[in-house]
């Protein structure tokens, strides 16, 4: 494995390990994973269930700290960060998209998109409007999530992930709850995001989505193949 490149990689992982305790049993979810993802790359993380895909995504998304190993995001070493530092980093650098959309049912489409701005303390009303236009949901801006289709909900989630202008989008099974036609629309949207310069990492079981990626990282039993 090379040393970190001079132009920082979007993600640089070296011998990344993560283990959990479940009662007395220790589970090694990641057992020494190493890879580099370049800025603007579209990468699919694939593998069977229990391979450690979501654990890896959560580590890259600064939702958790690795047990050991080195992890650099956009040149910043995040492996030793505390919870507060990880939260700030996540808020500024990373956008999350979930399989179950993760929309707040009491908020409207526009409010859901604006939610991360509340946490970052930024007031960017124009940005919300632009994103609503970009994902084609401007006419639905005052609707509640319960009034939207699955595809529309995932587009809201993607717009929300983009509102803080992150450098990287992480998506965990973004088409997992969608029919194939709607899934294709979402895949197209991820392609557009990559072309706009964002680094996109997707955990997926969906072959068409994985095929769309520049590269696939295959995981099995917590290791890259």
């Amino acid at each position: 494995m090379r040393s970190p490149p001079e132009t920082p990689a979007a993600v640089f992982a070296r011998d990344l390990r993560k283990s959990y305790r479940r009662g007395r049993e220790e589970i090694e979810a990641l057992a020494g994973v190493s890879f580099v993802i370049n800025p603007g790359e579209f990468v699919a993380i694939v593998g069977p269930s229990g391979a450690g895909k979501t654990t890896l995504l959560n580590l890259i998304g600064c939702m958790d700290a690795p047990t050991s190993g080195e992890l650099r995001i956009e040149g910043t070493d995040v492996s030793g960060m505390n919870d507060q530092e990880r939260t700030r980093f996540r808020r500024e650098q990373i956008g999350f998209v979930f399989q179950h959309f993760g929309l707040i049912p009491t908020l409207t489409v526009a409010e859901n998109i604006a939610l991360p701005l509340l946490f970052s303390g930024k007031a960017k009303k124009d940005r919300v409007g632009l994103l609503l236009e970009r994902v084609g949901l401007w006419p639905r801006r005052n609707h509640k999530p319960s009034e939207l289709s699955g595809g529309e909900m995932q587009r809201v989630a993607i717009a929300r992930a983009l509102v803080n202008e992150p450098k990287m989008i992480l998506a965990d099974e973004p088409t997992g709850n969608l029919d194939s036609q709607t899934g294709e629309q979402i895949i197209t949207l991820f392609g557009e995001l990559q072309r706009s310069g964002l680094t996109v990492m997707v955990v997926t079981h969906n072959d068409p989505l994985a095929q769309c990626a520049d590269r696939q990282i295959q995981l099995k039993d917590g290791r890259t193949l």
Binding site: T87, R91, F96, F98, H100, L115
Partner: peptide, 16 residues
């Protein structure tokens, strides 16, 4: 609980 988790993923601090 899930919504709180999503908020944390979106950048909400423990304090927030």
């Amino acid at each position: 609980t899930g919504e709180i988790g999503v908020m944390r993923a979106l950048g909400a601090s423990r304090l927030q």
